[in-house]
């Protein structure tokens, strides 16, 4: 599979590594909105997110000569931002002497777009059910779904951001989709779905 945007970005990245900062400024413009949106899922402090975005780019400029090549610039940036934000949050928590496990939350509300341009009552009813079902998924699953269907990341990139293998990323996403599929297509093809799930897990073991 050819992915033009990925190729373009890794070329820009190379340019930047050679000392051409225009490359980085283009990468910045291509990704800053995605970074911002992703970052805002970890904290309501938007200024913190903006500061962290600036910090990761400053670090890139300062460590330019030590950077390695990457095919997945967007994934790399998201991962760096996530690490930075969580570090900052933990620092703050210590400072405020709030004792927490260090776990982070990925807050997301999948409801907000379901009313877009759809007058189909059945669809609305399903959207409501879907929303309820999504309440119960883990924040890790939410994060994977967000990366996949809002930022368009590949499984390899999602795995990188979540510190998983790409098979596990696939499984994580599949489970959530499966849940929703049962709502959007009740009764029908249940057996087939079970079979395909079985096949998917089978493949997983096979690949390990």
């Amino acid at each position: 599979m050819q992915n033009r945007s990925v190729d373009n970005e890794s070329l820009l990245w190379e340019e930047f590594k050679k000392g051409n900062q225009i490359g980085l400024s283009k990468i910045y413009l291509n990704n800053v909105t995605a970074l911002y949106n992703f970052g805002c899922k970890f904290t309501i402090d938007k200024n913190l997110v903006k500061d962290c975005i600036q910090d990761i780019f400053i670090t890139l400029i300062q460590t330019r000569s030590k950077l390695s090549d990457t095919r997945h610039v967007k994934g790399y940036l998201l991962k760096s931002l996530k690490r930075k934000i969580i570090r900052e949050l933990v620092k703050k928590q210590k400072f405020d002497e709030i004792v927490e496990s260090g776990d982070y939350l990925f807050e997301i509300n999948f409801e907000s777009l379901s009313d877009i341009g759809n007058e189909d009552d059945n669809y609305m009813r399903r959207a409501f059910e879907v929303h309820a079902a999504l309440e119960s998924i883990t924040s890790r699953q939410k994060e994977a779904l967000y990366l996949r269907f809002n930022l368009g990341l590949s499984h390899i990139e999602i795995a990188d951001v979540l510190h998983l293998s790409s098979q596990s990323s696939r499984a994580l996403v599949s489970r959530a989709i499966q849940k929703i599929r049962e709502i959007t297509q009740p009764g029908k093809k249940q057996i087939q779905n079970i079979i395909s799930l079985f096949l998917a897990t089978g493949n997983m073991f096979f690949n390990i």
Partner: peptide, 27 residues
């Protein structure tokens, strides 16, 4: 496509001026 539509969330934008000032800070 329907499943995809359920996973979509609201997209927040940074005003263009702010994108500038952030990049300015970075450089």
């Amino acid at each position: 496509l329907e499943i995809f539509s359920h996973f979509r969330v609201k997209h927040e934008k940074i005003p263009v001026e702010e994108l500038f000032s952030m990049w300015h800070n970075i450089t």
